[in-house]
Design a protein around this nucleic acid. Structure first.
Length: 272
DNA sequence: CGCCAGGCCTGCACGC
DNA sequence: TGCGTGCAGGCCTGGC
């Protein structure tokens, strides 16, 4: 479930159910995530009231007053609300039981996700401190993208996925935004003009906003649960559309490998 | 069996 | 020396 639109969709879905609620108990069934889940986490959470549910990049931030639960969904993580008290399944590693009996449950088969605790300002956490501008904020625009890419020879697709350049853009939405801006994914980031950076920053913003409006994308391992089903996968311009016609010009979408990740683009719309 | 998958970190060799 | 870069590999499970 993991790029910014999916995380934001999750955040928006959980926020009204969570904020103001007390956490009755928390259960950790498997500590072996990308980093070990802190041993004392259930004790920290027990009795805490969730004051706010925020997001920075792909990280969800549960403000508990005395500290923050930092949660990342990795590649295969999903966070949803269980209302019927259903028994946890194989990869359900973490539960928060609220004072009204609902359960917020994390399922993450690959365990690339994170469940951490941080006392104080979460933005000072080592994993968050150096993250670049939020793409939907005014901090991110053509000038910011231009400044962040000067002198860099890396492919722009790669740069977009670099969280230090801009937060929250992953493999799907990098390809999508580049198509929207008519920029070839292999273009050296530092060669982009001011105008191209402006177009690309705008395209990143539009792509993410449209995807959020669609509730994010639902791929392969998605399990429908709580009205959190996303639909943006039906609107992909290029992602996973190799060989299919470009929605804009009709030329065949191509697939290449960049840094061991798949990139998709239209060779007619997106010039090198 | 091998390959692939929405993330992200580390280590290495290399060039400037 | 120190960076940026482009790789490879690792962390895991599951689907094809």
């Amino acid at each position: 479930m993991p790029e910014l639109p999916e995380v934001e969709t999750t955040r928006r879905g959980l926020e009204p159910l969570l904020v103001g609620r007390r956490i009755r108990t928390a259960v950790v069934r498997n500590r072996a995530m990308r980093q070990p889940v802190p041993r004392g986490l259930p004790q920290r959470l027990q009795g805490a009231t969730v004051r706010a549910l925020g997001r920075r990049g792909k990280y969800l931030l549960f403000d508990c007053g005395t500290g923050t639960l930092i949660l990342h969904l990795g590649m295969s993580g999903r966070l949803w609300v269980v209302r019927d008290g259903a028994a946890p399944a194989k990869h359900d590693h973490f539960d928060m039981v609220l004072d009204d009996g609902t359960i917020v449950r994390l399922r993450d088969p690959r365990r690339f996700g994170l469940v951490l605790w941080h006392a104080g300002d979460p933005l000072t956490h080592v994993l968050l401190a150096k993250i670049g501008p939020e793409p939907l904020s005014t901090d991110f625009d053509g000038a910011a993208l231009h400044a962040a890419t000067r002198g860099r020879s890396v492919a722009i697709k790669h740069a977009l996925m670099d969280s230090h350049v801009v937060a929250g853009v992953g493999n799907i939405y990098a390809s999508e935004a580049l198509h929207r801006a008519a920029i070839h994914p292999g273009t050296a980031a530092g060669k982009l003009s001011h105008a191209s950076c402006e177009a690309l920053a705008q395209a990143v913003r539009e792509t993410l906003e449209i995807a959020i409006r669609a509730g994010g994308s639902s791929l392969r391992d998605y399990v429908s649960s709580d009205g959190l089903a996303g639909n943006y996968q039906n609107e992909f311009l290029v992602y996973d559309r190799a060989g299919l016609p470009c929605r804009r010009c009709g030329a065949k979408i191509r697939e290449i490998r960049q840094g061991q990740r798949s990139s998709f683009y239209c060779s007619r719309c997106q010039k090198a």
